[in-house]
Amino acid sequence: MRATTIHGPKDIRVEDVPDAAIEQVGDVVVEVELACICGSDLWAYRGVSKRQVGQRIGHEFLGSVVDVGAGVTSVGVGDRVIAPFVWSDGTCPHCVQGLPTSCPEGGFWGSGSSDGGQGEAVRVPFADGTLVRIPEGVDDGLLPALLALTDVMGTGHHAAVAAGVGPGSTVAVVGDGAVGLCGVLAAKRLGAERIIALGRHADRAAVARLFGATDQVAERGDAAVERVRELTGGLGAACVLECVGTEQSWQTGIGVVRDGGRIGYVGVPHQAPALSLGTLFGRNIGIAGGLAPVRAYLPGLMADVLAGRLDPSPVFDRTVTLDEVADGYAAMDERSALKVVVRP
């Protein structure tokens, strides 16, 4: 079978790899129908996050089950399924409490020797704890919206939940990548009254408005903080979604949050921010978030997609074939694409 591999900075290839196959009784093999490139994949693409030469890459995919281990009970051959970006056993104390990302048996697609999602097929360990079955008869036109649930929509939702967004909230979203835009959509879904989207790209601002942003702040740094405070009568936003993970984005988030407010953070901290505990303490700022437990959110988010209440698919603005996947990485790296779908 063919799959995407990474060999160094900006060196993405499609190569023949061993066929995905059942290894344990709890495994299934999924033939990939749709995958996509994540903003976090770009850290490896740029050489910031190290990978082994020839390692598989990609962690967002959905598809059809083509082989099933003897111990699997929740899905069968022919079922369409969604895979969150982390597999988990579904039975450990962490999984039971809704934190599958801390499962001791879990792991990430494309890490170490595991299968990556950007290929023709994937072996899924612990299928009963990991996969979510898509009901029969779902229109193919909904698949891009369901694909977004594998990571970015669930991650944006986690930021909103961690920040305490609820009916009537005033929210500021730091970051206009796919996760930040999904954070806007999540805040709207949770009932926020005012949503301030921070970002300087006009095309992404248009998606933010479509998703429910009421205000747009294109300034950066101190100017962005000043503008948000101006929009909020000098107070700042009660709920801030930090969706980037850099020191600058954290400084902005702390600058725009209201005293007594909360920051929900989901930006991967490849550049560790320098946080002042004294500032957080003195202003009573709460911080929560981290690696999104997407599997726990998937059933509820999928129900809303299928009911027509939620559509994160506008975050996808380009589609490539597997043979063109390197072009997709380059487009996202150059910011000529927001988020790229890969069709094997």
Rank of each mutant, 00 (worst) to 15 (best):
V217K: 13
A272D: 02
Q55F: 12
A172H: 08
T101V: 15
Q97R: 14
Q248H: 11
C103Y: 03
A272N: 00
G212Y: 09
R335T: 00
G260P: 13
I37C: 10
A162G: 02
F108M: 13
V124N: 06
R13W: 06
A296I: 10
G58P: 03
R194A: 06
G63Y: 08
I134Y: 04
F85E: 02
L99V: 12
A35H: 08
E136P: 03
E219K: 06
A213N: 12
R318E: 04
E193T: 15
D151T: 01
L241V: 14
G54I: 07
E105N: 11
L277Q: 13
A237F: 10
A127L: 12
G177I: 11
D139I: 00
V217W: 12
A162R: 04
V96D: 07
V228R: 05
V96K: 07
V96H: 10
D333K: 00
V305H: 05
L280N: 04
L131Q: 05
H157T: 05
A205P: 02
A127V: 12
V315E: 07
L277S: 11
A224L: 13
L301R: 06
Y45C: 02
G300V: 00
A205W: 03
R335S: 11
G260I: 08
R335P: 00
V184I: 14
G177M: 12
V132C: 03
A202V: 15
L280A: 05
D140K: 12
R200H: 15
G69A: 08
V217T: 11
P299S: 09
D139G: 06
G289T: 14
G267M: 04
Q24V: 07
S88L: 00
D19E: 15
G78S: 06
G183M: 12
Y45A: 03
P312F: 04
A70V: 13
V29W: 02
V341L: 15
A213R: 11
R13F: 04
I287P: 03
V184K: 10
G8Q: 03
P93G: 12
C92G: 12
D140R: 13
V65N: 00
V30Q: 06
V341F: 08
S249V: 02
D67W: 00
V25C: 04
A274S: 04
V96E: 14
G54F: 08
T321C: 09
G156P: 06
T214M: 07
D203L: 11
D128Y: 14
G278S: 13
I285T: 14
S336M: 09
V341E: 09
A145Q: 02
G308C: 00
L142D: 05
D89W: 09
A35E: 01
M1T: 01
S114M: 02
A127W: 03
T91K: 11
E242I: 00
G98M: 06
V30Y: 13
T279H: 12
V138L: 05
Q24P: 01
G199Y: 07
R258G: 10
L298G: 10
Q55L: 09
S49G: 01
Q24R: 15
V217I: 09
V72S: 10
